[in-house]
Amino acid sequence: MHVLRTVFLFCALPAAVLAQDDLLDELEKQADGKPQPVSATFKSTRIINVQSVETMKRNHLDFRISHRFGRLNSGAKEFFGLDQAVMRLGFEYGITDDLMVGVGRSGEQKAYDFFGKYKLLKQTTGAAQSMPISVTLFGSAVIRTQESFVPGETYSFQDKLTYTGQLLIARKFSERLSLQLTPTYLYRNRPELSNDENLLLAMGVGGRLKVSRRVSINADYFYAFRENNNLPYYNSLALGVDIETGGHVFSLHFTNSLGMIEKQFIGETTGSWGKGDIHYGFNISRTFSLDRKKKLLPN
């Protein structure tokens, strides 16, 4: 009898597998468990000042307007800095989903910046052998077109160039928290101040904490490894809020840096948080899809 019951149960099994809910279970078993890259480690291609591991997707164009106002401690007469503003305009474009290029024009030093970003590694979730971090390479060249930093001196084309190389290493720890480390190599063919070094190495840390589905608190900081401590420069710190409104990302923040490109905020920040040299600023980004795939729909 016992044998019979076992045999019967065994035989009844295929029928049970095909019943009701089990069709769904069967589909789940068939589904591929391939590791998926995490989405949106950061909301945009910047944390605040620093580049984030994110790149523009293929055939997408981002138009960015960044503003930094004057210093808060400039007083009521200057409307706490709001009377003055510097701006950077930029166009950034995704050649592939992993490779992007960008160009920008900063009012500060009348500088043109050209950069490229490439996603080297992507953090994944799911399978056992998932990638714990994302790594993006960043390289830029900047030309300062504003004449003579010191009156009377002349500068060659070469003198006006600065190069930046960065390794952007980030991890999305949870849906809410993402952190990034940014080792930086900054080379000035001719530094703004004659007693400054050509080569500056720096380490950046930054991150975002989502407080709601559309709002996050962001921060980034750079520690510059300077040998000369007599320079009037400070480390850059920015704190802000990102608000996302479908198509736009508004980034509102406070920072002691006036410049919005690496050369300026990592190497030439003259403001000090301690003294109240804080600039209110915002970045607005609007992304356009240039992808017009008509074959998307069957009919």
Partner: peptide, 22 residues
């Protein structure tokens, strides 16, 4: 039975896709 990964929905505009997922 029908089953699909939400992440497999693709939009012409990738920012929209990100908002849809996030």
């Amino acid at each position: 039975a029908v089953r699909m990964n939400v992440r497999d929905f693709h939009f012409p505009n990738k920012l929209m896709e990100e908002h849809f997922n996030e």
